[in-house]
Amino acid sequence: MTASLTRRRIRIINQICWTLALCIVAIPFVFPFLWMVSSGFKSAAEIFGSPSLVPREWQWQNFIDVFKHQPFARQYLNSLYIAVTVTALTLLVSSLAGYALARMRFAGAALVALFLVSALMVPEEVTIIPNFFMMRWAGLVDTHWPLILLPTFGPQGIMATFLMRQYFLALPKELEDAGKMDGLSRLGVWWSIALPMSRPALAAVAIITFLNSWNLFLEPLIFVSSLDKFTLPLALSNFTDPYGMPLWHLQLAATSLAVIPILVVYIIAQRQIIESFALSGVKG
């Protein structure tokens, strides 16, 4: 009885020590976020005047001014629909292409895979100028198409394709055979068997793609010039006074609003996000 009590006490002390240690380690990670949110409620003067996390005077007006300064609601919606479209398209293209590369024997399959890998090795910044000329030739500059097409068919799409391919390779072939015996076509096997069995990989691709698209900055900067076509990362850098100096209180309030969808996604799919990083081998 005494021994068991002692063991329990040691376990509790152990837990407290670990929690404290983790809290201390978490401070550098959490503090910038808390500072950002609290600064969104401060006046421009107070942000740099007081290091306190609690505003002296809560400036709710900041969050109204964000929408007055530029068409922020429109820009928010732009980011949202572009991220959702890119995610849906990437899921479709990468799962189809990944399935073909994993399961279909066709002439030049190895060459296609080699081309894809080569494309991954080229930094995105290097291809941005040829991409710009291509989009200008197609009449797509200052539209949202480059922000949808480039991530879907660019390096992120290729990464997603490889991730799906690796997952499909691990699926038992007998299940596909069973599908064929049941009367499914190749596309039917993909839709009815391969996809439902690849939910973890699809979740990983969806999460990574959504986050990438949501945070995309370079492409909107290059391809979009109209204010009402801006996406959030671009819009956030546009909270400036007439002299080009940043309006920090508005910028930080807007940034606090911009992280809401990411936080919602994270809270809903916390487990899948961690699994997806493990599965894809990429960092968050």
Partner: peptide
Amino acid sequence: PARRGVAMVFQSYA
């Protein structure tokens, strides 16, 4: 396969 009038039981059950 589906039009041959055959059914298959697999080793791994599938």
